[in-house]
Each structure stands twice: as structure tokens, then as C-alpha cells.
Amino acid sequence: MTTESTGSSTDRTESADGFDFDTLDRPIDWNEAVPHFDDAPDHGLRDADVRAAWADRLAQWLPPAPADVLDLGCGTGSLALLAAGQGHRVTAVDSAPRMVEHARAKLTGTGTEVLVGDAARPPLDGRRFDVVLARHVLWTLPDPEAALRHWCALLRPGGRLVLVEGVWGGQSPVGLPVARLARALAPLAGRVHTESLSSEARLWGGPVTDERYAVVAVVDGPRRHTEVVDVHLIVRRGGEVLLARRANTGYADGLLHAPSGHTEDGEDVRAAVIREAEEEVGLRLAPQDLRVALVMQHRGPGTAPRIGWFFEADHGAGGTPVNGEPDKCSELGWYALDALPDDMVAYCRAGLDAYRAGERFVLHWHEDDDPVAYEATARRVVTLPMSGQQGQGAVRR
């Protein structure tokens, strides 16, 4: 949904519907914004000169018509109307039902489908498009990078993202700097073109002083899938295992986890776990100290999947464990493998349970709304039979 700011030609931090980007301390209710939304020159495109400026830009950014265009966060449908008028087949999505109601009225007779849905995950049933268009939408989403990855997956090979974004407000700026957006798109698109729009007064109905820009990114086709490879160390002291309590990391803080990390460029999994063991718990392990315990493909809530290698080592190998990263770990402790605590990272707890049961290859796939912490009622592990075993895998916990 467009959230363009308007106001005087020198200080345009307050929008036509009354919110001030410098004092924005609550989520915007876009249904409440509907009555005045189109008063902003670049929203309603009521002025012929502003409308012509946006039409010229769309003609430059969009492929030749007819193309399948997905307008995400369409607001009242002004850009969708321009695209449809240029001969494109348009599908528009907005999260606010009142916005959708106005967009449907504005787009009557154009053949445009207007849907109520989340711009980050639009309800499209597997459909693909030539263009994903979004104007001042990405900055409102909780995880812009995740949205970009999903939007790229909605494109056909050679499709393009057309994004208009900016940074508004003087005291407490909001928005997305162009550098952040370019970095996020670099691994997703073959070509990324950015252009400043701040000096284009025709687009905004007058001069502006804040940062406004457009990004056109072309996705050349499906890219080879890659996954992060992480490593985990199971240190055994008889029937006990060593666990560390995470702190100040921004992920699963307060929960227990085995000493772990991920491989670096050019590093094999055994070298990685040896390095992580020394960094995290002060153990100087040799390759012969390690045994492969478990391989797990796992996916956290709403995140990309990873491959996890769990290695086993006996207590005493490489020295005595110490807390090597007190800024990231609040404590180390020994815990009974057959009575593990519940306050653990879910996939690590599931991996240790599978290891204790003699499993060696497992999947652990979170649902998007799952917690990171272990829940006894959540059954997310699927065991994969090894060669010579019968069956197709079973959910254990």
C-alpha cells in the first residue's frame, strides 16, 4: 500500500490523512486512511500532470504490454489503473478491505482482479507474473528481505520487480535506504537498476526534500538452491550432554542449545565443528576425537531451511569445557540425555532425542507460527530410514 508523505513543499513529513512520520508510534490503520488517501497528489493521481508523470515512469519500468502485473499494496488502485490502461493484465492486492473496495470501484471495467491479502504473502494459489509492482509497501513490512525473496518466487524467468521506496521524516526517519534494498536484491536478481526520484517534482505534485527512489530488478530465472550448513557438538559425559544457554544473540536467547555454529567459505563440516568447539567451549579437538552423530535438515519458523551436522565427542577430549563466549552464553551445564530440559531450542532438542533413539537422518520442519522453543505437543520431526531399513519415515516428536 502506498504510504507517501505529503505536506508543504519544504517539509513533507505529514500525510494527507494526518499521520506524521516524525511521531509515528503506532501501526497505521489503512482502513481509517481511506477517506483522504487519494488527496495526496501521487495517491489519487487526480492532477493530469502528476498522472502523466507516473504513466511515463510505468511505461519505462514495465515490459511491453500485455504483461501480467501484480500490484502489491495497491491502495485505492491508482497505479493499477495506469498499468491496465497501458494494456497490461493486472492483479492487485491490499490488506485493507476498505482500500480494496475503493480500488475495485476505480478499476471497474478494466478486467483487474483486486484481492484482500497480505502483501508479504499474497493469496495467489501458485500463480506467476511478469512484474511485481510495489510502491511504498516494503518499508511497512516486518521482514522486507523475506518479502523480497517471496516476491522473486512469484516471478516468471526474466520477470522484474518494480519497487518505489524512500526514507521520510527528519527527527526519526522511517523507510528503507536504497543501499539496504540493493544489498537485499543482489543475490536474488541478475540485474538491479536504481534511480533517484527525489528531484522529480512532477511525480509528487511539487518539490520534495526527502529520499525517494525506484528500483527495477530483473530475475533471470530459477537460481540453484543453497542452504546454510551448521554444525553442532554433542559432548558426552556418560549419560549427560553439555548444553549452553544462549544470551544477547537476538535468536533463542535464554534457551539451551548444544555448542554450535556454521561453516565458513571453503570450510568442511569437521573443520567447522573443531573451530566452533574451541571458540565456544574452549575444547581443542582433533579430527579423530569426532564421530558423526546425526544429520538434520531443519527449518525455523518463517525462515529458510538449513542442513545441520551433529558430531559426538567424549568428555575429556580436547580439554575441559569452559564458557569461551560469555557475551553470547550465560552458562554451561551438564544435562541427562534421557531427561533433557524443555527450555531448549526446539530443533536441537529434537535432534538430541533422535540421536538418543539411534536415529541418524531426520527432518525438523517448523510451521511459520511455531515458537523457536521446544514444545512437547509439537510433532515436527520426521525420521528418514537408512539403507536396508523399511518404511518411509515416521513422525516421532
Results as ranks from 00 to 15, higher is better:
residue 212 R to Q: 11
residue 203 L to Q: 07
residue 317 A to I: 01
residue 212 R to H: 14
residue 251 Y to P: 00
residue 74 C to R: 06
residue 228 V to N: 09
residue 45 L to R: 06
residue 310 F to V: 10
residue 363 L to R: 12
residue 371 P to Y: 05
residue 128 R to I: 04
residue 88 H to E: 02
residue 106 K to T: 13
residue 195 E to K: 01
residue 39 D to Y: 06
residue 257 H to L: 13
residue 311 F to E: 04
residue 243 L to E: 03
residue 284 R to A: 14
residue 393 G to R: 02
residue 48 A to I: 08
residue 57 R to S: 04
residue 176 L to D: 00
residue 33 A to Q: 15
residue 126 G to T: 09
residue 349 R to W: 04
residue 186 A to T: 13
residue 207 P to K: 00
residue 189 A to E: 04
residue 298 H to T: 04
residue 258 A to Q: 00
residue 171 Q to W: 07
residue 102 H to Q: 15
residue 141 L to A: 05
residue 362 V to P: 01
residue 214 A to F: 00
residue 190 G to L: 07
residue 289 D to R: 08
residue 162 V to Q: 11
residue 122 P to Y: 09
residue 232 H to I: 00
residue 205 G to C: 02
residue 69 V to R: 04
residue 343 D to C: 00
residue 379 R to A: 11
residue 275 R to W: 10
residue 355 Y to S: 08
residue 206 G to C: 07
residue 220 D to Y: 00
residue 318 G to A: 14
residue 258 A to H: 03
residue 72 L to C: 11
residue 376 A to I: 00
residue 281 V to A: 11
residue 126 G to R: 07
residue 83 A to I: 08
residue 392 Q to D: 06
residue 34 V to L: 13
residue 16 A to E: 07
residue 231 V to Y: 12
residue 303 T to E: 15
residue 206 G to Q: 05
residue 105 A to K: 14
residue 80 A to E: 09
residue 251 Y to K: 10
residue 178 V to T: 06
residue 27 P to E: 12
residue 289 D to F: 11
residue 263 T to S: 13
residue 60 Q to G: 04
residue 291 R to N: 06
residue 366 H to L: 01
